[in-house]
Design a protein around this nucleic acid. Structure first.
Length: 977
RNA sequence: GGGGGUGUAGCUUAAUGGUUAGAGCGACCUGCUUAUAACGGGUUAGUCUGGGUUCAAGUCCCAGCAUCCCUACCA
């Protein structure tokens, strides 16, 4: 080398600069799939989840619905699960993860129906519909699966569980059967949305609420025939003789309805016990005809407005609470029977009507519930076409959508008990297909009697660990208040309720023999067999001879019963079913879903498991919130704030506007937020995450790039010989490992995210690596000064890769594959969870180092003031003088500690401050550029003495002492020679 | 309508009822050109609103506002 004549820049070639193929930018679109292919080739998930030495770990997947594109909610859920599973795998556990899909149910059925031509629809049979739905669901599963895999989720993708699989359906029948045999299943009436025009029950999703629906609005008087004694005496005191009140033409309760056709089914009048009611004297007013009663009960608050709307004088005679009205018996104005006044609930308001609600338990949900409280019968005198039946007496044969209302009103008018009739416009549900109004109609349904195992369910809840703890209150309240679970649906795409009805008597055939026979049939042929075969083909041998007498049911199960049986269908939690893999166990270690699943899957799974086995199907339940936009609003197309995970990962149409950030950025987002509440996501947040991703990546790249000539087995410096600075760096690394281990243990990934950032930015970039540059670049390649640093870099980069692996799995593997020296493990995941040797933990290093770093910050501020004054550029142009006075004791102590224990070639305060000269005490330098005193420390900045060494950029006074290198300092000359 | 959750700088987040509310990112200013579509340095700003309890409130209580989830439905 002829350095003497070469231009200064040629000394650059004598430095030990970065070399690594680990690129600064991720190129995630290409690189991530390559890494995933590498894992697949190694069979990494399969081997770790089955062959790891530790205990098994079961995170049981809640099945997403097999319809539609993946959204960020899916990403949050599945990535959280994957972070937990990957952590467990790194920790040596056998974390087998069987992904699932919920495949039955209305949305898919409707999707299929919508896709049919009208000609196809007329030829449609249940079996052909089911075949189409089956195919559709599988197609959706494949689409979603591809998305999940692209996110780097590890799972048994080739053997997922689907609720439409034969074995799953059979296990579900097993759960149902066990509940039947335990006496938890019964048949009863329940009002459902019913479409007379299409003669079917409708689900909420099949209803629409067109504008402009008007109903007859009817006020009627129901004459009292009996009063509770207390009310009677109050009336006497107010001047109304109870005997007159209960005589014809006396007292009546005023009710309001918009469905007069339900009046024949009236079995009660409900009041709100907390509302005030007035008993009023009625007088005719103007042209209005006075009704055939002398007194009316109405809500006090509505009395005045009713005077106007009814055109009556209503003079208050007595004010009572709703509770006082309970026990009045009234005569039905149209039917020959009497019924009670009962206490309803807070659904009874004074917003409209009279404050007294006409109650027909067969035709309304509130009515039904109130009726149950008072053990009223469920009268439903309407057939499936909407025709009133014989039970409706004189109105039999009229139709609820046609002549029932006018006929009934006419009859009411004739009694003189019709107070008022007008048109009323309100929201009313219509059949979305026929565009005709629907009704509420009580129908026979199948129920699980929650009452039968509520106490056990509450006990089971108490045994589970709920995270966050508020989840327990939530599900506890729901389970303790909920009614029985209606598990039947009048649908085709689902698991059949395996029951037979006697064709003549209606008797139900549902017993151990039929259940196990049908379970076996479904296990062999799938649930389609229920529709493909006739009764003779479905009944067990001993009954088959009488098959003609029996009719198979047409109901299917609520899909929540499907997914709620997954502990049986997947984890083998019921006799006769097998778990999908030997590593799975029941109860599961963990369920992890959105907080809406307290009402959904957490609860349906709990109820079935408790009913069958007496305990919860899970030991812990972790919930996450919902994904909102950056302003905390929900994502919607109309607001234009939807973040599509596919676009985020793979890029949009215009990659300049919507770059391909890759799965790791999506995963980093999941790790960055406190998911115990709702989590925000939007373009600004994505950009920030991309910045953090790049910071981590560049930090790793720097570590790798400085190890290109390092082999730990040959070059590593033993811990005990490492300089203080290096020991401090390893102490920081150990502290990071410890805190992050705890963060993952507690599922507090956002703390990991914060700690990772601080580690990369502060500990590494700002401090250690900045100081390390001189050691790495300038020193001779094999100098202790450099090898010791490289020792640390290698130790840190391997552990950094491990710590980020659960979250930034692709980057972690990319780091591992770019380690420039040989390691035993082919994958970072084979290395296991990072650990730190005990000797690294030297908390005693922290205190003096903190003092020195504070001193460094003080010096930096002064250097900056010189820089902004144009007096300095690089900090190496400066020299620093320090004086430590009163108040700087801890700094003085730290410097003494440094001096006493320093490794001279590295632990040098001037190097740590990145300045060319440092003077402690003594006289102030000439030409001080900046001076500041703080906490007893005086800092003075001056230009460094000497000239700039062309190679190491330090200002030294020994430049040019060597004739071959006239622009170099003595240190660099020594390195070159 | 009912039940539940959340609300700390522009963003993500810290803070057993107890110092001047702590970080990282961003933004702005700036240096370096040996991490260079990189790296360093500096600056910046905050407890949703209003009451209450307390010597002391981001933290506990009440009300309101915003927002999300569940639920009911409009007789």
């Amino acid at each position: 080398m002829t350095a003497s004549s070469a231009p200064a820049s040629s000394y650059k070639d004598t430095l030990n600069l970065l070399q690594t193929p680990f690129s600064m930018r991720a190129n995630a679109k290409v690189r991530e799939p390559e890494i995933q292919a590498f894992w697949a080739e190694l069979q990494l998930y399969e081997r770790l989840s089955q062959e790891n030495p530790g205990e098994s770990f079961t995170l049981h997947d809640g099945p997403p619905y097999a319809n539609g594109a993946l959204h960020v909610g899916h990403a949050l859920n599945k990535i959280l699960k994957d972070i937990i599973n990957k952590t467990a795998l790194l920790q040596g556990k056998r974390a087998r993860f069987i992904p699932g899909w919920d495949c039955h149910g209305l949305p898919i059925e409707l999707k299929v129906l919508q896709g049919l031509k009208s000609s196809e629809r007329t030829e449609l049979t249940p079996v052909s519909l089911r075949k189409k739905a089956h195919a559709y669901a599988l197609e959706q599963v494949e689409g979603q699966k591809a998305g999940f895999r692209r996110w780097g989720i590890w799972a048994d993708w080739d053997q997922p569980y689907l609720t439409l699989q034969k074995s799953y359906e059979a296990a579900q029948i097993g759960v149902f059967g066990a509940m039947v045999l335990a006496g938890h299943i019964y048949r009863g009436l329940k009002p459902v949305h019913w479409s007379p025009s299409s003669r079917t029950a409708l689900a909420e999703a099949e209803l629409e609420y067109p504008d402009g629906h008007t109903s007859p609005s009817v006020y009627a008087a129901f004459p009292a025939v009996e009063l509770p004694p207390a009310l009677g005496s109050q009336l006497s005191a107010a001047g109304l003789n109870p005997e007159d009140a209960t005589a014809a033409g006396g007292l009546a309760v005023a009710i309001w309805t918009t469905t007069p056709w339900t009046l024949p089914a009236n079995l009660a009048v409900s009041v709100n016990e907390r509302l005030d009611y007035a008993i009023c004297a009625v007088s005719g007013r103007g042209e209005a005809k006075a009704p055939a009663v002398s007194h009316l009960v109405v809500a006090s608050e509505l009395r005045e407005s009713l005077e106007t709307s009814l055109g009556l004088g209503l003079k208050p005679l007595l004010n009572v609470k709703g509770a006082d009205l309970e026990g009045i018996v009234y005569r039905h104005p149209l039917m020959d029977r009497t019924s009670p006044v009962v206490i309803g609930g807070d659904y009874i308001t004074t917003e409209a009507g009279t404050g007294l609600v006409h109650t027909a338990p067969g035709h309304g949900v509130d009515d039904f519930n109130t009726g149950r409280k008072y053990k009223l019968p469920v009268l439903c005198p309407v057939d499936e076409a909407g025709n009133l039946t014989a039970e409706a007496g004189p109105f039999a044969g009229t139709n609820v959508l046609k002549d029932a209302n006018p006929t009934i009103l006419e009859a009411l008018e004739a009694t003189g008990l019709l107070l008022k009739q007008e048109r009323y416009e309100h929201r009313y549900p219509y059949d979305w297909r026929t565009k005709k109004p629907t009704i509420f109609r009580a129908t026979e349904q199948w129920f699980a009697s929650v009452e039968g195992f509520r106490a056990a369910a509450l006990e089971a809840i108490a045994q589970v660990e709920w995270l966050p703890a508020s989840g327990r209150n939530r599900i506890e309240a729901m389970v303790s208040e909920r009614g029985d679970w209606c598990i039947s649906r009048q649908r085709t795409w689902g698991v059949p309720i395996p029951v037979f009805y006697h064709r003549e008597t209606g008797e139900v055939l549902l017993n151990e023999a039929t259940l196990s026979h049908i379970q076996a049939l479904i296990a062999e042929h799938g649930a389609d067999v229920w529709w493909e075969r006739d009764e003779a083909g479905l009944l067990p041998a001993e009954v088959a001879a009488d098959a003609a007498q029996w009719r198979k049911g047409t109901d299917t199960m609520d899909v929540w019963f499907d997914s709620g049986s997954s502990w049986a269908g997947v984890l083998g939690g019921i006799t006769g079913s097998e778990s999908r893999a030997p590593q799975l166990h029941y109860p599961a270690d963990l369920y992890l879903e959105g907080s809406d699943q307290h009402r959904g899957w957490f609860q349906s799974s709990l109820l079935t498991s408790v009913a069958v086995n007496g305990h919860a199907p899970y030991k812990r339940v972790l919930t996450h919130g919902f994904t909102l936009d950056e302003k905390g609003r929900k994502m919607s197309k109309s607001l234009g704030n939807v973040v599509d995970p596919a676009v985020l990962v793979e890029g949009g149409k215009n990659e300049k506007q919507e770059p391909a950030y890759g799965a790791d950025v999506l995963r980093l987002w999941v790790s960055s937020v406190d998911y115990s509440a709702d989590v925000p996501l939007g373009p600004g947040i994505v950009k920030q995450l991309a910045d953090v991703y790049r910071k981590v990546r560049n930090t790793a790249r720097y570590l790798l790039g400085n190890l290109h000539d390092f082999d730990p087995s040959r070059d590593a410096v033993p811990y005990a010989e490492l300089p203080l600075l290096d020991q401090w760096m390893l102490q920081r690394t150990a502290a990071l490992i410890d805190s992050v281990s705890g963060d993952f243990e507690r599922f507090e990934f956002y703390r990991f995210f914060q700690a990772l950032q601080n580690f990369c930015v502060v500990d590494l970039s700002n401090v250690y690596l900045d100081i390390a540059k001189d050691r790495l670049y300038v020193s001779g390649a094999t100098d202790f000064r450099r090898r010791s640093c490289q020792t640390v870099l290698a130790l840190v980069v391997e552990r950094l890769a491990g710590l980020i692996a659960p979250v930034l799995c692709h980057m972690a593997e990319d780091i591992w594959q770019n380690l420039p020296y040989g390691v035993a493990e082919r994958s970072v995941f084979e290395r296991g969870w990072p650990t730190a040797p005990a000797e690294w933990r030297q908390p005693a290093l922290e205190q003096p180092m903190d003092q020195i770093l504070q001193l460094r910050a003080l010096v930096n501020r002064q250097l900056e003031s010189c820089r902004s004054g144009g007096q300095l550029g690089a900090s190496l142009e400066a020299q620093v003088q320090l004086e430590l006075g009163d108040g700087a004791e801890s700094t003085r102590a730290a410097l003494s500690w440094l001096e006493a224990t320093a490794h001279p070639s590295v632990d040098n305060l001037a190097d740590w401050l990145l300045v060319s000269g440092l003077q402690l005490g003594g006289s102030a330098p000439d030409a001080v550029l900046a001076e500041a005193a703080e906490g007893g420390i005086t800092v003075r900045i001056a230009r460094a003495a000497g000239q700039k060494c062309e190679r190491c950029w330090h200002y030294e006074t020994d430049i040019g002492h060597h004739s071959a290198h006239p622009t170099l300092c003595g240190r660099c000359v020594a390195v070159l020679s």
